[in-house]
Simulated scan of single mutants.
Amino acid sequence: MTSPTDISGLTPEWLTAALGRRVTAVTTEPVGTGQIGTVHRLRLTGEAVPEQLLAKLPATDPGVRAMLAGAYRQEVRFYTDIASTVAVRTPRCHHAEIHGDGAEFVLLLEDLAPARQGDQIAGCPVGHARSAVANLAGLHAPRWCDDTLLDIEGFSRNGPEEAATLRELYGPTTDIFLDRLGDRLTAQDHDILRACGEVIADWLTARPERFGLVHGDYRLDNLLFGTGTTPPATAVDWQTVNLGLPARDLAYFVTTSLDPEIRRTAEKGLVATYHQRLTELGVTGYTLEDCWQDYRFAVLQGPLVAVFGAAYGTASERGDTMFATMIRRSCAAIRDLDSLAQQPAPLRSPAPRPDPAE
C-alpha cells in the first residue's frame, strides 16, 4: 500500500486497508487553508468505523512537499513514537504512514469537532490559558530530562552549530521582518527585536541542565478548546516538536496569547498552574522559583518564531496581523520581565525612544 499524496487517493478500499475495518463509502471536505499541507474532514460509512476523521496530507505542490519533508517526518514520529508516552491531550491517531524522504505521508486523526480553534489575534480568556498550560505540562513532565529521547531519529538538542546558524540568520531576518511589518510596531519594539539578535544564539543553547520535549509552536492557533469556563485544551500540529528548555513553550504561549494588561495580572498564576501540574506528573527538584526564572528567560521564543515565520512564510493579511500582534505582546513581556538581563551575555534593555505612533 502506497501513501496517497492527495485526497483522491483516500478511497474506501485504501481506508479499509489503513483502518483494518471495512469502509463502504467516504465523503470529504477541505479544512483550513493548506499552506504547509492539506487537511480534509472524512465522513465514513462502513463496519464499526469512526463516523468522522481528519486526514492530513502533504502540500499539493511537489516542491513544497520536498521542502517540508523534515517537518512531515517529525509530526508522524510524534504520533507513532511519542504520543503514547506523554500526557498531553492531542487527537487520537487512527493511522500514520510515511514513505521515502517524508514528502509522502498520511495521518488519520480523531475529529474533535465541535471543539473550536483558538484565535491568535484575539487572544483568549485566562481560563482557556490555564487549561492550555496544564495540558502543556503533560507534554513536558513524563519525559523530563529523558536521555532516551536522543535515541529517536530526528530528535536532538541545539548545539554550537545551530547557535552559529541562528547568529548568522537572525539579524538579516529581522531586517526583512521590519521592512515588511515594522510600521505596525513601536520604536521600542524595534529596539527589543534588534537587542534580541545580540543574545539569541547563546540563548538557544543556555540552561542545558533542563531539557525535554518542546512543541515549538504551542500557541492558540494550534490548540482546540472544548466548552466551559476552563475548557479542555487539545494540542495539534506537531511538525516542530523537538528537544529544548521546556519553559520555552510555556513562555511562548503565555506571552503571545494574552494582551499585556491581562498577562501582567495572570502570568504568575499561570506559571504556578503549569508547575503544579509538572509536580503532579512526577517532576522533582524543580521549584516554582526555578520555573518562574526559566519563564522569564525563555520569553525570547516569541520573537524567534514570529520573526522567522513572518519573514519566510506565505504572506497574508491575517498572517501579517497575527505576527505583528505576537511581536508586540512578546516585546512588552521582554520589557516587563527584564528578560534580556537574564541572558547568558547580559544586555541592558534598550533605553526608551519616542514612539512615532503617539
Rank of each mutant, 00 (worst) to 15 (best):
P4D: 05
L15A: 07
G20N: 12
V26P: 08
V26S: 07
V31G: 00
V31N: 01
A55I: 05
D61G: 03
G63Y: 07
G63W: 04
Y72L: 02
E75F: 01
E75S: 06
E75H: 04
Y79A: 00
T80F: 00
T90Q: 00
P91E: 00
E97M: 10
H99C: 04
F105A: 00
E110M: 02
P114I: 01
A115L: 09
R116M: 12
G118L: 04
Q120K: 10
Q120L: 07
I121E: 13
V126Y: 02
V126R: 02
G138Y: 11
R143Q: 15
R143C: 14
W144K: 13
D147K: 13
L150S: 14
S156A: 15
R157E: 09
A163P: 11
T165Y: 02
T173W: 01
T174G: 04
I176Y: 11
L185V: 11
T186D: 02
R207E: 12
E209W: 03
G212T: 10
L213H: 03
L224F: 00
T230G: 01
P231I: 04
D237R: 02
T240L: 15
N242V: 09
A247L: 06
R248G: 03
D249R: 03
L250G: 01
Y252F: 13
V254G: 06
P260L: 04
R263Y: 04
A266G: 09
A266K: 13
T273D: 09
R277M: 06
Y286I: 02
Y295V: 04
V299W: 06
V299N: 07
P303L: 08
A306Q: 06
T314A: 11
A315P: 14
R318S: 10
M322H: 07
T325Y: 06
R328H: 07
R329T: 11
Q342H: 15
A345I: 15
P346L: 14
L347Q: 15
P352E: 06
A357W: 09
E358V: 12
